[in-house]
Design a binder for these strands. Structure first.
Lengths: 204, 204
DNA sequence: CTAATTAGTTAGTAGTCACTCATTATACGG
DNA sequence: CCGTATAATGAGTGACTACTAACTAATTAG
């Protein structure tokens, strides 16, 4: 049997937990299942994490890191506010496609009731995303690109809701469509509504 | 100890399950907890439902009935398409406020993996809601009230997403605000974007 | 008032849960 | 190539899981 350094093993266990949370459901995920998937015995998990809650916290940290990185790339690759909004939302959809357990974790009892730390981590993460959207929406409005009667705060919530709504449709529909592709289509429709004078003022 | 007719008891167990699903989480809800809440011994549950899955199916039927009734009221009380949309969305938000377990059930492993029947029930319910929204959005567009460049299908998905996004914000924020009230505000903002000539053509 | 029906109980099943403890085996620095 | 640090194991804990079987007691029909 192979031995790994504690640091590597810890990361391996956390990412495996995130993957298994999708297959088994966050609240039915057992340390036994994690151990099997990693190729260890069940008590070995507790050598790396004192409690199961600590394991979830590590998962939250992993999610935070990868999402933060994805947002940074999205912002670095684009300068125009509207392109940045698209890039941010698409990054989010791709993260969910890669880690489909994330929406379920949001509604898990682990997060909702038992693990206040986990809840706070995810809440902070979501508020940071909202902040990024808000900044771009404000920029777009101030630049005269978006309708002045749309409060940037409302726009941010609408875009976050779009992501979450698509995620639910995706999973209820057995993930039969490409989340990021369909999401991009709907995002386009929503942004079209945000824009000033969308080019049909020649109506009537 | 009081005895009730099987029919009444069955309904009582189902509604209690729905309530407890919020407190304990759908995937951690035990038949013992249900029995305690109803005031019976645990095996008594299995006199009324052959398996736990059957109990969940009864919960889904309860949800279907109350939501369908709420939709009917919403449509009966309004004739104009836009008012009907508002009434439908508000009805949905109030249902979630009254039964906060509903969003979590959507992401439960019970629904996602183990109970295909439950999944199908909820999926059908959501598609019926989408159909109702779609009908009103089409009417509004055809009447020249909503922008012709907004596909009614997209509008319906945006409104459903709004409900789900608000629900997540509500629960992540410890349900610190009134879901229906805040939702109405955001819905107003979204519908404003749907409308034709929102009254700021006197700009510049 | 009695007999049939049936809601509910008590006692128990095999299986699973997170977590502990003492021991073993592996990697690595000297 | 040996000694130390430590990753991992084996065996086991009590508590809980959905579910069963046999029995009891409350309701109701005749």
């Amino acid at each position: 049997m192979s031995r790994k350094s504690a640091k590597n093993r810890k990361a391996e266990i956390a990412t495996t937990t995130l993957r298994l949370a999708d297959e088994l459901g966050p609240d039915r995920l057992t340390t036994q299942a994690v151990a099997d998937a990693v190729g260890l015995t069940q008590p070995a998990i507790f050598r790396h994490f004192p409690t199961k809650q600590a394991l979830w916290q590590a998962v939250a940290d992993t999610i935070t890191e990868t999402m933060t990185a994805a947002w940074e790339v999205a912002l670095a690759e684009n300068t125009q506010p509207e392109q940045r909004l698209v890039a941010l939302v698409l990054a989010q959809l791709r993260q969910i496609e890669a880690n489909p357990a994330i929406p379920a974790i949001l509604h898990s009892r682990e997060l909702q009731i038992e693990n206040a730390e986990l809840r706070e981590s995810i809440r902070t993460l979501m508020m940071r995303f909202q902040g990024l959207l808000l900044a771009e929406l404000t920029r777009a409005r101030d630049a005269g690109l978006f309708r002045p009667d749309l409060a940037p705060e409302d726009g941010a919530v609408l875009l976050i809701s779009l992501v979450q709504g698509m995620a639910i449709r995706w999973s209820l529909g057995n993930r039969a469509f490409a989340l990021a592709t369909e999401g991009a289509r709907l995002l386009d429709a929503q942004l079209q509504l945000f824009r000033v004078l969308p080019g049909w003022e020649d109506r009537t």
